[in-house]
Simulated scan of single mutants.
Amino acid sequence: MWAISREEADKRGAIYETTKFPVKVMVWLGVCSEGLSVPVIFEDGSMDAQRYIDEVLPIVLECGNEMLGEHWTYQQDGARPHIHYLSQKWCIDHFPSFISKDRWPPNSPDLCPFD
């Protein structure tokens, strides 16, 4: 049975329509003592290291330099695109300072308040 709303479904026996594959949106946002970065919104596809390098890291660098000047450190979590060797190399080559995946403690509640 199909119904327009949960209320209508309840009247007909509590069967209601659901979306089989809901829309997914991925958002990247940087946070620092000086504010928030420009959000990067991905409405399609999945994130891999190359997409992260091409679409996120240049914005991170630009926002970091604008907000913090020349002396700042970039830190990221342990997501697969972040720890990929190409992403790590890009970060080492471009950021003024960078905390590599080997120095980042996993699941640290005091260093990862958003988790």
Rank of each mutant, 00 (worst) to 15 (best):
P96N: 05
E43S: 09
W72G: 07
W90C: 01
E62Y: 09
S87C: 08
D54S: 09
V60T: 11
P58K: 03
I59L: 06
R6L: 11
P106W: 00
G35K: 10
W28Y: 11
T19L: 12
M1C: 03
F95H: 07
E70C: 07
M47Y: 08
C32E: 05
W28S: 01
D102A: 09
C32Y: 05
S87N: 06
L36Y: 15
V60N: 02
E66F: 07
P22A: 09
S5K: 05
H84F: 09
Y52Q: 05
I15W: 15
V38L: 12
R6N: 10
D102F: 11
H71N: 12
H82E: 00
S37I: 07
Q75Y: 09
Y85S: 14
L111G: 11
V31A: 08
M26I: 11
I41F: 08
G13E: 12
I83R: 02
G78K: 01
L36Q: 10
V25C: 15
C112T: 13
W104I: 00
I92G: 02
D115N: 10
W90R: 04
E34T: 00
G35Y: 11
D110H: 10
W90D: 03
W2T: 10
R6F: 08
K89L: 14
P113C: 03
C32Q: 06
D44W: 01
F42A: 01
P39M: 05
Y16I: 04
D115A: 12
S5H: 02
Y85G: 01
D77E: 14
E66T: 12
W72C: 07
E8Q: 14
R12H: 12
G35W: 12
I83D: 00
H82G: 00
K24C: 11
Y74W: 15
V31Y: 05
Q75T: 03
E7H: 01
G35D: 12
A49Q: 13
F98N: 04
P39S: 04
H82C: 02
S87F: 06
A3I: 00
G13F: 15
H82F: 01
M47H: 06
P58I: 04
D115E: 14
S100P: 02
P22T: 06
D48P: 08
P109H: 03
A9E: 08
P58M: 09
S100M: 01
D10A: 11
K101Y: 10
D48I: 07
E8K: 10
F98K: 04
L57R: 03
E66W: 03
S5F: 05
V60W: 01
F95C: 11
E43H: 13
R80S: 15
C32D: 12
Y16C: 05
D44K: 14
D93G: 06
D54C: 06
P22H: 04
T18S: 15
V31Q: 02
L111Y: 05
